[in-house]
Design a binder for these strands. Structure first.
Lengths: 306, 306
DNA sequence: TAAAAATACTCCATAGGTATTTTAT
DNA sequence: ATAAAATACCTATGGAGTATTTTTA
């Protein structure tokens, strides 16, 4: 059986008249009669009662008519879903981000824009460390990840740079360097004697290494104190007076009590925001997400350094 | 689009390999490739990613695969329903009966047999007078009716005789004729002086006329007292001592207090059981019902005259 | 008998087959 | 280099067209 048979059958049942149905279908009566009989022969069921002024569906014909309409509707629905899926308008996507990413206003903005634009794409979010996110990408548990640092082993992973923001020194409130003119930039070497609170290296090696490298460039080797597993923990430790830290500027947005920020003078390390994807991932929602992220990044006038 | 495309698509998606799918479909690889590409072109959607060792459904392909399977299942289901409907195994039937019919053991037996044999046919029962049942048949509210009397205007109605049973005299308990040897048959003319309770003529003219005619044949004109709208009411009136009546033998089964029965001698009127249908009704459940009724009637060894 | 469906046939579009080339790793 | 898909081309099945007959109330 073919869909043709169902289409023809519906036309004949609706018209109650083979000749008129043929006209409506843009064909002649004999081939239509033949196809109807072929359908009846295949099902071994009489679908129409032939009368001198047309045809009338039998009980079986009526039963089939209802189902045939439902089947054609089912097909229309399936094709629409398929097309939407191909366009990336329907499906699923899991977006991961490191703990510091959501503080950058770009991230919530782009997530919201995606939800608005592609409401049929089911979007799940996952916060995790950079290393876990990259593993998640490889294992298909995550489809896109906002990260801040370069990836150690980028095999099969494509990283798109999005935005850069300065890094600031986070000092305990009341620290000597936190007093004075707060808007003036600080030279990194001023911090040579301080204890540094850093983000755990295994979780996000890039940030750790960038800070150490910047210190060495300024002529000193930083004393590393506590290592924090999340960027927020870093600030908690700073607020507790256990040391200073160097964090992306957008962290200021969280208004943490007991922490003061100072800008850094000269070639201070900067904090990039990047998007990591599987290289050659053709999943349409992922492509749409990347498109939207890039477009939003282009028109983003960084309000982070307020 | 045709079902062929969906069948081929499913085969290729399941095999992940056009050549193997073609083999499984009993065809060659190039035409299968062509049909798949034709489907992709029509939908304007890429369904497979071509790899050096086979093909892999895209996200859209996966979406379509699930729907395509559901559609084929939908079709199978529709065809099965159509065939069952054609065979009379599925559908609806409304069976009517006059008030006296269900007392004949044949009627409940055949109803039960039909339910058991055709569980997917939704069966509704309707009790009504003969006249209303025939109108119900004409108006398609009823599809088959168990009646006892001939139909006045049988235009478009086919009546099949099923069984005959004797009619008995129903007497008030304590009536002179109810005493004595109860098994002995009574001559109808013995009742010449009695008041007759009869079934209302408009509701069931056949029974009424049969009784009057039998009395005339026995040489008297019966005195008609109350007319009852239902056969049970007749017996109630007899029990109340308002007169005698002549009723089908199977009415004994209802064990009505205060009523005694006597057989009739000679050419007493007999009570037929008949099935009325629309002439030329081809509805399959109705044909099945008629077949079953006839078959059951043939093998029915009347236990009514116990 | 009259309208409509079924049959008989013819034709051609296209599904499917055969041979070969292109592609992707 | 190799396996598999795509392309080119051919064949023939069967869907559709034309002319006519049969059916049914």
């Amino acid at each position: 059986m073919e869909l043709r048979h169902l289409r023809y059958f519906i036309a004949v049942a609706e018209e109650g008249h083979v000749t008129r149905a043929a006209e409506k279908l843009g064909m002649q009566q004999p081939p239509l009669s033949q196809q109807i009989r072929a359908l009846e022969r295949e099902l071994d069921v009489q679908l129409f009662r032939r009368k001198p002024r047309g045809v009338e569906p039998t009980a079986a014909g009526h039963a089939l008519l209802a189902d045939a309409r439902a089947i054609l509707a089912h097909i229309d629905h399936a094709l629409a879903t398929t097309r939407r899926t191909a366009r990336g308008e329907q499906g699923r996507i899991c977006v991961g981000f490191t703990s510091s990413a959501p503080f950058h206003p770009f991230v919530p903005r782009v997530i919201r824009a995606f939800r608005d634009r592609y409401p049929l794409v089911s979007l799940t979010l996952e916060e995790s460390g950079t290393t876990e996110l990259i593993e998640g990408l490889r294992g298909e548990r995550v489809d896109a990840a906002f990260i801040r640092t370069p990836v150690a082993n980028p095999e099969g992973i494509a990283v798109t740079p999005l935005l850069e923001e300065p890094m600031l020194v986070a000092l305990p409130q009341g620290h000597a360097l936190a007093r004075g003119s707060k808007t003036e930039a600080l030279a990194l070497k001023t911090l040579a004697a301080e204890t540094f609170i850093v983000y755990r290296r295994p979780t996000g090696p890039g940030l750790y290494d960038a800070i150490i490298a910047a210190c060495h460039a300024s002529g000193f080797s930083p004393r590393v104190g506590q290592e924090a597993p999340r960027i927020v923990s870093t600030l908690n430790l700073v607020a507790a007076g256990l040391g200073v830290s160097i964090v992306p500027a957008s962290l200021q947005r969280m208004q943490m009590d007991g922490v003061a920020y100072r800008r850094l003078k000269g070639s201070a390390p900067s904090a990039p925001l990047r998007l990591a994807l599987r290289r050659h991932d053709t999943a349409p929602p992922v492509r749409r997400f990347l498109d939207l992220v890039r477009q939003t990044a282009r028109t983003f006038d960084a309000p982070s350094a307020r």
